[in-house]
Design a protein around this nucleic acid. Structure first.
Lengths: 238, 238
DNA sequence: TCTCATTGGGCTAGTGTCAGACCATTGATG
DNA sequence: CATCAATGGTCTGACACTAGCCCAATGAGA
């Protein structure tokens, strides 16, 4: 165990290759279902991602060749999503875990617990002003009324909304990052009706605690929920 | 308020210029007192930061010209820190806040609260195995026995230790990032003996809750502590 | 059927960054 | 005093990335 705070500061400055990083981002946005129909125009997307259009186009081309996107020219054209999450098969999870390495798995789960609990706690102590309470209720209703097909997508939206609604872009980015790191794992386990119902009750508890302004209860509810997911993962790995 | 989770995913891929980012990192490592005597050798440091030696050298040269470092050649040479935190003056804080913008200030404080609370909570539920309990106690003792000169440095080390000891590099990096974002602000307010004593009691409470394995108490203790800092900032701004 | 705003496709010149090799300097040590 | 390991200083060729520009295709609407 490294105990020096220096290592956390003198860590890599850049995530690496801009092209690969872009591919990763776009792929995960697609797999998360955050991009349903088509990507924003290249010029706008490049600006949002802080890269040049050339680099973005390379990434899009790679994803098109891999079958995730279909690019059409002309007005009303764009990069259309051609991807439906395949039904998870036996062995997918082990492969996903092997891809990321067990050390990183624990890291990602710990990180996710910390930032999502932090976000829920912050939101629970936020001023009730604004419309965030309505938004939160709406997202909860959406995920709770979702069928197995839409479930992952709306579940993601719900979780990320909690962070977004705190109004802190940094926190939202951290939660998005945490979620992205476990996406492949979640996609590799089947969505069972039983689990959906179980999760729905926990989502209710989270929202109730946040709306009641009880940060401790919110923290516990999120912890319990994420612990359930982690247990599910461990179960499929056992 | 932006409610779409997409914005958190389609955010900039790279923090920007590698050179500027490196300057920022090194400068903050110095200001935090994490680098006391001299920087690691260029070759090692470049590897750690994931950049080329050329880029690193440009950053070091910039900091040397700004008076933060003094570079000496030959064996036993290196980039030596020549910087003592100047006593804060009236107006420094306002300037620091103006530099970062008030929106970013709220963002940074929220982010810091979330991740540090998350880290404390995680550590409170961690297995008591290993030596992390001893390390935590040691860091607490160090910061509590610190004089005004060493206080900021050891306080930083204490806070970052909590995240480090969770064993999650991602979480440690997030906490380090959060701390870095408020460093300039903290350095701009004077260190009063009263505040040190007040903070010491809160540090004790945080450690006690963590060692007792009580995540709720740990969360509350960290919240209270950080809220105290935020209040101090607001006080100096009023 | 024609127009044209919007979008992807492609090019170029210039800059940032890298990897690796080699040189220059220093000072502890024999 | 001579050695030499460790460290900063410098150079070069290559590649990644960018900004900006113009072209090509498309299809909704006049």
């Amino acid at each position: 165990m490294d105990e020096s705070p220096l290592t956390a500061v003198l860590r890599p400055v850049r995530s690496g290759n801009a092209f690969e990083e872009t591919v990763e981002r776009l792929l995960r946005a697609v797999k998360l279902g955050l991009v349903v129909e088509k990507l924003p125009p290249e010029r706008e997307l490049a600006a949002r991602l802080g890269i040049s259009r050339v680099t973005l186009r390379e990434a899009i081309r790679a994803l098109a060749e891999a079958g995730y996107l279909e690019v059409r020219r002309g007005r009303y054209g764009g990069a259309f999503v051609t991807y439906a999450p395949p039904p998870p098969r036996q062995g997918d999870l082990r492969r996903a875990v092997a891809d990321m390495g067990t050390g990183h798995l624990a890291d990602a789960l710990t990180f996710r617990t910390a930032v999502e609990c932090g976000a829920a706690q912050v939101l629970a102590t936020a001023e009730p002003a604004g419309e965030w309470r309505e938004t939160l209720r709406r997202r909860l209703a959406e995920v709770n009324s979702a069928g197995p097909d839409d479930y992952r997508r709306l579940d993601t939206a719900f979780h990320l909304s909690i962070a977004e609604l705190t109004g802190s872009p940094l926190l939202a980015a951290a939660c998005a990052d945490a979620r992205l790191r476990v996406t492949d794992l979640l996609n590799a386990i089947p969505v069972l009706q039983r689990n959906i119902e179980h999760a729905a009750a926990q989502h209710e508890a989270i929202v109730a605690a946040i709306l009641a302004g009880d940060p401790d209860a919110a923290r516990r509810a999120v912890t319990e929920h994420l612990e359930g997911t982690a247990a599910l993962l461990r179960g499929f790995l056992a």
